[in-house]
Design a protein around this nucleic acid. Structure first.
Length: 517
RNA sequence: GACCCCAUCGUCUAGCCAGGUCAAGGACACCGGCCUUUCACGCCGGCAACACGGGUUCAAAUCCCGUUGGGGUCGCCA
């Protein structure tokens, strides 16, 4: 353990109960350190889908902590998964964080002294570092095939053994490994973890955490495509970017020993690690899109104010000294004590968020409220998209609202007529529910470019594959998404409504259909 | 299953580190009332929790151990 740096820049009056004493001693020791490192924090999302509410949550705490200490908050794009990463997702992350007012000091789009800030542009750096570890014996090439690893896992599962790589290639003599690499044999680079003893790591909120080393397998650092895994990339980058505090989600605790081992192998000081509790669904599982809206795009489209959103997110991990629940980002920056973050996984409660949002709305001057309405719900741009679709169906201006109201409302209520049409002709309610659900989850959720053309292609493709005819399926979709059997062309309507609203309404329709038994 | 984390009202939490002032406080939701032409807002009131079992102590929501429960991780994803 490198030891000293965990106190860098903070005043760790630790709240972790079990370590109070030890922590207090360490804090006292470090008080003489006038050379505290500047505080630098980061958010490191991977651009593989819709911008996630959890990203905003973690970003908020990182930004607040950095700002409180006059440090920097960095945005780093972790796009080392070549298949899953895409530029549309990256752009949405920027948009969503900016919408919330979570501005970063350094990042791919704003630059900074430690760039590039997009990991795909740093591949060479990771490769060099991986080689350093191979040279020092802290990592080794592994030639195991996917088939062998699958078989290994299957066997371990069957025999109820601990899962993980068995270290097969670790015993290959370095010279031979080198020869095979030169010969062009496909391989990855794995971290050589100690096999006995225990790894002792420290989390700001929880104190010391111990892991038996036999539990920790040899993690892949460099994939066979030459790209790093998260484990290598995040450690290398956090060090090179001089990140002082790694504030991230709790799900990373299990891999902390590997990260700590990497710092040690490189001979680097560790940052302070602080793992925030995971946001939860109502059933207490980790928040997920099956059970909760998780896309920041949804919250924006659904008419939540960014400042209310931020306020609520702060409440998910922090309580003000006077227990006030309504406060702005500046107050949060002033008052936050990282060590005081609450540990229980908070259930994300839409009802309370909605209440808070209402409070914020009522506080705004009418003119300001109108400006919000104009920018999010009644923008000229949106109106201009809706108008062409409705125009042919109305004869006077005042009929506009009547024919277009579903473009401006949130959740729909299906009347009896609508409920009837929600069920596909010649099919049952459960069948229709299943089709809509599959369409949504397997085909629509992953669609990044929500255009009429793409939608049509995807939906027709689904029909072909599933044996549903367009004639059967289009009406239920139409009613689900608009609440009415008479609407402008389906895919254009869906494109204008946007992904978030369509997704939400489709999901509600599935619930509705299921209730019909 | 193994390892790790967590544990106060249905939900978010205060209190816990420095045990007594806690017959456990606040907020959301829910219920009732007031205000009001209606609804909403606002205000007032109500319902509702220390997971369980041991231990330490004059005293435990607070400290210790165990159990139970919940969660996370176990990928050439992050």
């Amino acid at each position: 353990m490198s030891g000293a740096t965990w106190t860098a820049g903070s005043n760790p009056a630790l709240s972790a109960k079990k370590l109070r004493t030890a922590a207090g001693n360490r804090a006292a020791e470090s008080q003489g350190e006038s050379m505290a490192r500047p505080v630098r924090t980061r958010i490191a999302p991977s651009p593989t889908g819709d911008p996630h509410v959890g990203t905003a949550y973690v970003a908020l705490f990182n930004l607040a902590f950095a700002r409180q200490h006059g440090g920097q908050f960095i945005l780093r794009i972790e796009d080392t998964d070549q298949v899953r990463s895409d530029v549309a997702s990256e752009a949405m992350i920027y948009d969503a964080l900016r919408w919330l007012g979570l501005e970063w000091d350094e990042g791919p789009d704003v630059g900074g002294p430690h760039g590039p800030y997009r990991q795909s542009e740093r591949a060479e750096i990771y490769r060099e570092h991986a080689e350093r570890l191979v040279a020092s014996g802290d990592a080794y090439p592994c030639f195991c095939t996917k088939e062998r690893l699958d078989a290994l896992r299957a066997e371990q599962r069957e025999k109820k053994l601990a899962l993980g790589y068995d270290g097969h290639c670790r015993s290959i003599p370095p010279q031979e490994a080198e020869r095979r690499r030169k010969a062009g044999e496909a391989h990855v680079i794995r971290l050589a973890m100690p096999r006995e003893g225990e790894s002792v790591v420290r989390d700001l909120l929880r104190g010391v955490i111990r892991f038996p080393n036999e539990q920790i397998d040899d993690q892949v650092l460099l994939k066979s495509d030459g790209f790093p895994t998260y484990h290598l990339a995040n450690v290398v980058d956090d060090h090179l970017m001089e990140v002082s505090h790694v504030i991230r989600a709790e799900e990373w605790i299990s891999s902390l020993p590997k990260h700590v081992r990497l710092y040690e192998a490189f001979g680097w000081d560790e940052p302070v690690f602080c793992h925030l509790p995971l946001l939860r669904n109502a059933d207490r599982s980790k928040i997920s899109k099956r059970k909760n809206p998780v896309s920041l795009n949804y919250y924006r489209r659904a008419g939540f104010l960014p400042e209310a959103m931020l306020n609520y997110l702060a409440l998910m991990g922090w309580t003000m000294p006077d227990e006030r629940e309504e406060f702005g980002l500046d107050e949060f920056v002033d008052e936050l004590k990282l060590e005081g973050v609450t540990l229980g996984g908070p259930v994300f409660d839409l009802a309370k968020l909605t209440w808070l949002n209402g409070r914020y709305m009522r506080r705004l001057e009418p003119a300001e409220l109108l400006a919000r309405l104009r920018s999010e719900i009644l923008s000229d741009g949106y109106l201009l998209e809706v108008l062409p679709l409705v125009r042919e169906r109305i004869d006077t201006l005042d009929a506009f609202m009547e024919y277009s109201q579903f473009f401006f409302t949130g959740d729909l209520t299906y009347d009896d007529a609508a409920r009837t049409k929600l069920v596909a002709k010649g099919r049952t309610a459960p069948q229709t529910a299943k089709a809509l659900r599959t369409l949504l989850e397997d085909h629509l959720d992953g669609l990044m470019e929500w255009s009429a053309e793409n939608l049509e292609e995807v939906v027709r493709g689904f029909c072909e594959a599933s044996g549903w005819t367009p004639k059967e399926l289009f009406m239920p979709i139409r009613v689900a998404v608009t609440g009415s059997p008479a609407t402008p062309p389906l895919f254009e309507t869906m494109a204008v409504l946007g992904k978030e609203l369509c997704r939400r309404r489709l999901r509600n329709a599935v619930t509705e259909l299921r209730s019909m038994k």
